[in-house]
Amino acid sequence: MHPVTLKILVAGGFGVGKTTLVGAVSEIQPLRTEEMLTEAGRPVDDVHGVERKTTTTVAMDFGRITLRADLVLYLFGTPGQDRFWFLWDELSQGALGAVVLADTRRLGDSFAAIDYFERRGIPFAVAVNHFDGADHYPAQAVRDALDLDGGVPLVMSDARDRESVKEVLVTVVEHAMTLATGPRAHAPI
């Protein structure tokens, strides 16, 4: 019996930890399409709050994790800068759901990803990546700041920690499955 394979996107703003999240949990060597930041990109790459960042994803990150013997997740990390967003439409095709990774130092950078998934009806959860030295806020304060619908899961996480990332992924899969099997899934079209 072949396992069920599901596609999950990992999205969020520039420097939020998408590549780190995919790498922390992938059971294979992740595919990364990172390039060095350049002087030419300084006017368009806002590194405020992530000044030590030296690389950026220019296409996608890819990883795989087996959650159970019969369930495998393929993870696709999206690029964070506006100029690469044209790739999101291709990457989102066939996705079960998404993680919107958020940084409390730059919450505004999460709005584009949240809006993208809301407009396309793709189930998502928000994972607040706790960076060292960043202020930590109660979940409800973050939910209010992001103006999240009450049904959108919000979890605190550490993109560097495998177990934390697994919890985030399970939350997304459960949320997407609940929406797929709930009353809306059986409503007439």
Rank of each mutant, 00 (worst) to 15 (best):
M1L: 09
M1R: 13
V4R: 12
T5G: 01
G12A: 05
G12V: 00
F14P: 06
G15H: 10
G15T: 05
V16Q: 01
K18G: 00
K18I: 01
T20G: 05
L21M: 15
G23P: 08
V25M: 09
V25H: 01
S26N: 05
S26K: 05
I28Q: 08
I28D: 12
I28T: 13
Q29D: 14
Q29N: 15
R32K: 13
A40R: 13
R42T: 15
P43Q: 11
V47I: 13
H48Y: 11
H48V: 13
K53S: 12
T55L: 11
T55Y: 03
F62S: 01
G63M: 06
T66F: 03
Y74S: 07
R83Q: 06
F84Y: 12
W85M: 13
D89I: 00
L91K: 05
S92M: 06
Q93F: 04
Q93C: 01
V99R: 03
L107V: 09
A112Y: 03
A113H: 04
I114Q: 05
A127H: 00
V128D: 05
D135Q: 14
D135I: 06
H136M: 12
A141H: 14
D144C: 07
L148T: 07
D149R: 15
D149M: 02
G150A: 15
V152Q: 04
V152T: 15
L154H: 12
S157E: 01
D158F: 01
V165T: 03
V170K: 11
V170N: 07
V172Q: 07
H175T: 11
L179A: 08
A180L: 10
A180V: 08
P183I: 07
P183A: 14
R184M: 14
